[in-house]
Design a binder for these strands. Sequence first.
DNA 1: GCGACAG
DNA 2: ATCTTGTCGC
Length: 230
Amino acid sequence: MSWPTTVTELARLQEAVGAIAPDPWYPSPEGLATGGVFVCFGRGGSGPGAQGDFGWAGASVVRDGRIIAGATVTGVAGGAYRSGYLALREGPLLEAAVRALSEPFDVLLVNATGRDHPRRAGLALHLGAVLGIPTIGVTHRPLLATGDRPQSDAREATGLLFLGDDLVGYWVRTRSDSRPLAVHAGWRTSPETARSVVLLATAANRTPEPLREARRLARTARSADSPPLG
DNA sequence: GCGACAG
DNA sequence: ATCTTGTCGC
């Protein structure tokens, strides 16, 4: 498993990875260690982002509500942003940040889709296949999947996300009265497992703690490396 | 009317 | 993602 450098090669690998049905993983009720990984890129013009942009990736591990590990790495975007080909741009950077963690964990939250993808292999799922660990995708909105938002404004309200006839994830309201997050089945995880783990990993904020900490680490590293002029 | 396709 | 504008709630 790897990170191709061209869209043609990536599409071919996604077809292969998307066709795999790995053994399902189930969270153990006690002491679940959940990781999170997030990448942000340098400032500079607007637009979708180009190949070669500098990036900062943060990763964290949270267990029993406590942050027990954190890591940050820097690198370069492997490609411009292209819907369906996020792995080209962010894959290597995300993998490096996760490998830099000093503590083991059970499942990883990734800011990307999973089975909700043209070739059933969104970046969250692809990263899990590369690392050989269960992953779950968390995004603001679906890529291709469709489904009604939760009816209730209460925390834990959900809505189904379908890609054709397949249930690929859930809308999950992680905090009362906040917009729901799109939660995606990833590597070795079902939509139900994804929903359950995301709720377990969420505290007072809308964003699950592992992702929140990973994002904080990435942005802090970026501001330290590229302070505003003047 | 445009765009509607993760980050 | 990042940017910008506007609104809401603490």
